[in-house]
């Protein structure tokens, strides 16, 4: 890994009396994929908006490529690329026209622009549909154009703000693969998500953010070590039954560290998941609660979040 391309120190962002980002500090090294993982409303998008010069910070400092985000915004904007959470495209322009417009905003022109448009269209797999208006595209195709715009000027640091929200699994897979490919080509990526699986699959390092605070930061191994060698036993309870009754009883079973309910799923943290399956089924039978599925998970980021906050990522 190389020197940090992004350094954030005590970043604060307030909206009136509400503090959305509470003095977070982290850095991203050149060439890594760094994920900000947290539930909706945790402060991920606000953080990216401040770092991309869109919002002004209330306090703290941030540099990108050695340039102050707040003092040299124009220089910083040339270094970064943005893939916003919401589609930010002109529906009545074609994909090629969109790319051309945004490319020119990034100071591309002439042959360079034409070449980059063709390369990006190839990269996002829309060369044959480049001259169709974006409004005729499927959601997944629009997402790909949205990403393509962020890549046009070959940014050194790419901000991707929950780019897979609301799309089908196939398009999601394609986006995750493209992020890994971009990283292989040398691009540094700051990726925000509330999907634990995406952060696990992509990230060299992860920052876990909740209520505007960075509550954990490190490699996946470092973070998982915070929950020790505990495993997660996930129980899917029948929709007709109340999972809370079973969860409350499970907390009294020796070896169960936590038992939390999300919808009709009970997530149990324990050093020996295999060992508590029998008493769990016994309890369920006694309470007349039907268990539809049982799953044992190795330590993961979901467990880390649960361990740190007492809540699941989807809460």
């Amino acid at each position: 890994m190389m020197a940090p391309i992004l350094e954030v120190q005590n970043l604060v962002k307030k909206y009136g009396d509400f503090t959305a980002v509470k003095g977070i500090s982290f850095d991203i090294k050149e060439g890594e994929i760094f994920s900000l993982l947290g539930p909706n409303g945790a402060g991920k998008t606000t953080t990216i908006s401040v770092l991309s010069t869109l919002y002004t910070a209330t306090g703290g400092s941030a540099t990108i490529g050695g340039h102050s985000v707040f003092a040299e915004p124009m220089t910083v904007r040339q270094i970064i690329g943005i893939v916003p959470q919401e589609l930010a495209l002109y529906d009545d322009l074609t994909a090629r026209e969109n790319l051309s417009f945004w490319g020119q905003m990034y100071n591309l022109s002439g042959k360079t622009l034409a070449t980059r448009i063709n390369e990006v269209l190839e990269q996002i797999g829309l060369t044959d549909k480049a001259n169709q208006r974006v409004k005729t595209y499927s959601g997944g195709m629009k997402r790909r154009v949205n990403i393509g715009v962020g890549l046009l000027h070959r940014p050194r640091l790419l901000f991707m703000d929950e780019p897979t929200v609301g799309i089908d699994p196939q398009s999601r897979r394609a986006i995750l693969d493209s992020v890994k490919e971009l990283n292989r080509q040398g691009m540094t990526v700051l990726y925000t998500t509330h999907y634990m699986e995406e952060a696990q699959e992509l990230s060299d390092r992860v920052g876990i953010i909740d209520h505007g605070e960075l509550i954990a930061l490190g490699t996946q191994a470092e973070l998982k070590s915070q929950v020790g060698q505990n495993e997660t036993l996930v129980l899917a309870v029948a929709e007709t039954d109340d999972p809370q009754i079973l969860a409350d009883k499970l907390k009294t079973v020796p070896g169960v560290l936590k038992a939390d309910v999300i919808d009709h799923t009970i997530t149990t943290i324990t050093p020996d998941a295999q060992g508590i399956i029998s008493p769990t089924i016994l309890l369920a039978n006694q309470l007349g609660i039907k268990i539809n599925a049982i799953d044992i998970q190795e330590p993961n980021l979901e467990a880390v979040f649960l361990h740190l906050t007492g809540r699941a990522l989807r809460d």
Partner: peptide, 14 residues
């Protein structure tokens, strides 16, 4: 509202 204005303001345009 559509997000294109915020996106414009993250490009090298004042």
């Amino acid at each position: 509202r559509l997000g294109t204005l915020p996106r414009l303001l993250t490009t090298p345009v004042n």
